[in-house]
Amino acid sequence: MTRVGVIVFPGSNCEYDALCAMEQLGAHAELIFHSATSLGDVDAVILPGGFAHGDYLRPGALARFSPVMSAVSDFAAAGGPVLGICNGFQVLTEAGLLPGALQKNRGLTFLCQSTTLIVSSTRSVLTRAAQVGQELVVPINHFSGAYTCDDATYDSLVVHDQIVLRYRDNPNGSRDDIAGVANETGNVVGLMPHPERAMATLLGSADGRVLLEGFVGLGATTR
């Protein structure tokens, strides 16, 4: 059984939701507090949504200094699957594990709404079970979700097929409709939408399963 560690920073709030989603998919999930210096025996890591350290300074800016983050960096460098959702994505960009940055939404308000994502690449631990061009209904829930990067970084993202998800109808002003990106090797992925919130038709959509099943399925194997 895949063992997934869900990192909890003070101020995180989607850790329970990530845990529930993993367990629904048959994985074993455990919470790892930010003060931990080791990840223990996990096959995959999720940085969940929320407001780590209150988003003080800017989202993710303080969380990158939490003790657990050096263990996460080592895990990622060794090829371990790492997924950052929403605030977790912001943390990964601040920590330098993913390129680019997230800035305030175009309309300067928080947005909680359904979006339709288009899978742009399957070369990542999150999208490998999906099809390129597949449309997935997954909600967003953020104030600072507009993806941005300089031109050189953007060109590199395109060249290395690192843009994994795009919005069909860009809600927040993200560059090139980007909703999620991976690192060059595809084992670290961040996205602003919440696939763990799209696990059941009772709650509006089950399309998030396509993404998270791929993520969990990968955990037991090595890349």
Binding site: C20, C112, N141, L203
Partner: peptide, 14 residues
């Protein structure tokens, strides 16, 4: 108004 509120946390909102 309500788009500015997180209305979904805890996976309960039907």
């Amino acid at each position: 108004v309500y788009r500015q509120y997180d209305s979904q946390l805890f996976l309960n909102t039907v």
